[in-house]
Every structure is written in C-alpha cells, then in structure tokens.
Design a protein around this nucleic acid. Sequence first.
DNA 1: TCTCCTCGAGATCT
DNA 2: CTCGAGGAGA
Length: 325
Amino acid sequence: MSFYIIVNEDGTIETSSSLKIKRKKGNNLIELPSDYTVIDTETTGLDPVFDEIIEIGAIKVRNNEIVDQYQTLLKPEEFVPEFITELTGITNEMLENAPKIESILPGFIEFIQDDILLGHNIHFDINFLYDYIEDVLNLEFSNDFVDLLRLARKVYPEFENHKLATVGKNLNLDISGSHRSIKDCMITHKSFQLLKAKVNNDIDTLKSLWSSYTNSGWTDLTKIKADVGSFKEDHLFYAKNCVFTGKLEKMARTEAAQCVANIGGICQNGVTMATNFLILGNFDYSSNIKGNKSSKLKKAERYILAGQDLQILSEDVFYDLISGN
DNA sequence: TCTCCTCGAGATCT
DNA sequence: CTCGAGGAGA
C-alpha cells in the first residue's frame, strides 16, 4: 500500500497512520434488510495503511436465507505476524499458493454487486477493501452498509460487551471457529436475524432506540426543591432569583442550583425582569461563545442599565456565598 | 421544548 | 467511530 510522510510548516511530521484518509463510503444505515451480503475480512493487523487482507469471506442473503457464499485466502506481500496466526489460525504456509488480492477483487465486486453490506464493526472491513478497490480498480467502494455492532449496542445494552463472539454467545449461537471470515460472517448473519426478531422486524421499533433526546439530561432548574428542613432567611440569596451562565469549574450546575434552593433562593433557567443574581461560569471551552459574552450576560447588563436590582457574581464569589453562609 | 454544537470517554475490528 | 453530557439560543 502507499505510504505517506508529510512535513508540516511547523516542522512536525505526520505519517500515513496519523493521516485522516478521506473515503467516500456509502451510508451507515439503521435498517433491517432481508436482502444483503455479509462481509468479513481477516488481516495482518488493524491499520488499513500498513496491514494487508489475508482472507475475505462473504455470504449472500436473499429473503433472509443464505443463497450463496464467497471465500478466499490471499497471499500478502509481507509475512503474517505470529499473533495473527494465533488469533486466526491462518499460517504463512496456508497462504503460500493463495492468489493475490489484485486478481480476485473483480470477482469479489461482482459477488457483492450493489447489495447492502452487513458486518460487525463493518467500518474496519470497508476501510481495508475501499483502499484496495480504489488502488487496483480505480473504483469507489460506496455500498451502503449496516453495522451489527452499532445495532447490537442499542438492542442488547445488557450484554457485558459487544464483541462479535460475545454477541453470538449471548444469543446461544455456536461461536467455535470464530476469527475465520466465513465463520464470522455466519455468526454475524445469525445474530442479525435474531436481532431483527427481537425488534419484531419493525424498523420503527429499532429507530426508536435512537430517538430519545440527546438533551434528556437537561434539568429544569425551576423544578429543583430544597432538600433541607429550613432556609437561611438572612442569606443574600433567600427569596431571590438566581440564574447561571457558562460552565462552573467546581460543581455541576444542578448541584449549584440545589445549594441555592436549600438556602431558600429561586433558580431560573434564563434571565428575566425578576432575576436578581447572574452567576458567571467560564466560556473558554465553548467555541460558540469564545471570548464573547453569552446572551444571558448581555441581557443581564441591559437590565442593570435599566435600573433592575440585578448583580453579576463571579464563580468564586458564588462559592464564598454558599459555603461561608 | 427543540435543534445544534463541542468535548471527553469508551469500544471494536486484526 | 459513536454516544451521552451539557451548554446556547430560539
């Protein structure tokens, strides 16, 4: 494979392993197809730039049934490392008379056609194949694909991990002989069929696993109730409206809000004409805001100019106020 | 509420 | 890579 070294303007050196290679891959689908081709490759290592494919396996599925299969060992340019032989059982002797990948690629492409591809962590296999197919055939390997790993993590969150063998084991499949391409294709195919059944073959059921708001952890600060018996009625925050902006260094925002509630203060989510205190966190990390003022801060400053009883407090002053009672 | 953003943590493939 | 956390802003 090609090997790149790039010397940056600042003198630092990047090799191909640290280089982001742009591949125009197909779409990563969240679908439950009944027609697809499972693929799996064995390689001499994890890096598509330095390592080589030594075995390709594929299983063609139509209407959920296996209709054809493809399997070949491949002779690499370099020798197979010891640990790969231990992992896969593939020895240099076995590859002695195997074809080189260049000669079998056209046949492989013909086998998979424009099928949706299924694989476990299929990015790995596609990245390897993509580079060969581009180099040898000058073709873009852009089949859409379904990643069993991605689906299994959602559908079976209770599994101790989501390695292919673990998924297969938990689904009571025969996982002996894994780490050979055809066998792994088989485990992948059967796991996928069981996964489809688990979600009742219903794509909406599957997709609903992703639909929960990524923002579900958002807390409405006005709903935070004091969890202590009595308020500190002489405290600066007592019965006053408090708002936070920016990220607090020493505590989570909800913790800070809880402190305010326990004093008898009232937390708001945003600055209003009733706000009395705006507590300022930091914005360094937020590239949205960068050195600028947050919208809450700008709004507070306008209200202060208009004569509102509103004070802006630094994070440190806030800690002093809540701890030093 | 909802959408968009970034950051950091944690897996998986051989 | 993928995801969740936790922000902003509308």
